[in-house]
Design a protein around this nucleic acid. Sequence first.
DNA 1: CGGTTCGTTGAGATCGGTCAACTCAAGTGG
DNA 2: CCACTTGAGTTGACCGATCTCAACGAACCG
Lengths: 224, 224
Amino acid sequence: MLMRTAPHATSSSPATQTRPAAHAPCGLIEAMGAQIPFARNAEIYGEGEPAEYVYKLVRGTVRTSKILADGRRQIGAFYFPGDVFGLEVGDEHSFSAEAISDVTVLVAKRSTILARAARDTSVAQELWSATGQELHRMQEHLLLLIKSAEERVAGFLLEMAARSRSLQVVELPMSRQDIADYLGLTIETVSRTFSQLESSSAIAVPTARRIELRNRTALARLNS
Amino acid sequence: MLMRTAPHATSSSPATQTRPAAHAPCGLIEAMGAQIPFARNAEIYGEGEPAEYVYKLVRGTVRTSKILADGRRQIGAFYFPGDVFGLEVGDEHSFSAEAISDVTVLVAKRSTILARAARDTSVAQELWSATGQELHRMQEHLLLLIKSAEERVAGFLLEMAARSRSLQVVELPMSRQDIADYLGLTIETVSRTFSQLESSSAIAVPTARRIELRNRTALARLNS
DNA sequence: CGGTTCGTTGAGATCGGTCAACTCAAGTGG
DNA sequence: CCACTTGAGTTGACCGATCTCAACGAACCG
């Protein structure tokens, strides 16, 4: 299903790549090696593989996911430029990671980072707080999953807006299927909910991948 | 709603307190101070409060929870003897913690632990891995929430069994409401699902708070 | 111009929620 | 000891949100 394609340039969505780096310390993976490209839909690592490397996203969008026994897929998170992903506390990856668009990542050996953390307290602190940030996002995500479809979609849009450059216009690099699997809904329900939010003037959907937030208050109200 | 009762002995469920400590290193909070008791339903700390202390559960059961704006409640986790809880990466508690039964906890000042971590690498490592374990549990919890009611309940029972002394009999210290709020269901659905699992001989429910797992295979199959 | 993929929309089915009645066990107080 | 109360849990009937299945539309690409 997923192509483990050799890195090459395909169709990338330029609008999602203008966002500046976000993390404050960012010292974990600097000057580690060359930037490595992955093509759209390429697998960066697989669930259960040894967590040999830690990644920092430079360009593009990445999703992490798990496939359940019966074929259902759950998206764990979306990552944008500046985000660190693939950092595991245990020795293997608990999710797979795939490139949503063509991406560029910085890679560092996990063992190197761990060794530095054992000497340098500030590196250890960065490790801890990166994991803490991951935990925090997971908590937010979990809270989304107990809500109604409309609330989940509204929460998703606000989250994406908060992480994009513009708070008014959200460019979605991911497909409806990705959104549905992130929110625990079907693509039909996601699509219908977009339509519904549009007809209530909370958002506008000029193209499928571009959402304009017209009434943040209404969305925030749904966000509980 | 919650009584912030002064610690005293009320009705505790003895069956849940025989489980041995679980965490391997456990060095974080040893010899910190006296064991502190909390009465059933007492709040140990509140969401948003400064995370001044870290707790290790000695006896009883604790839940963490969040109340949403509209009154819905989400249980974040259940903690059993040996578990560390209340350890935050940020400076405030992201959930509240309440005693489900009468409990005893060990308490350590977070600032003290952080100071030690800044000197002692192994303490820093313990901090990191405790947060990693929390993250792992949250991932499992999140996976539960995308499933059907039957799968959620089956997954919950298997989780509780894995954390209890006996793999065959689960003593539930928490109410149906707690279970429902953990699983994102209503108490009626939880109750009906128990009945349903019982009539399919996957479990037996001799009393409301005691569940016997009669067919782990069937439960595990539901667990995807 | 077909073919393919992605997204939208509609109609009907189903799962879980809501509301309500009932059971049961554990107090409580006369 | 026995009503009475109270809280927790169970069960039933009904309803609505979301899923399923299917058709349709739009964009892209050979």
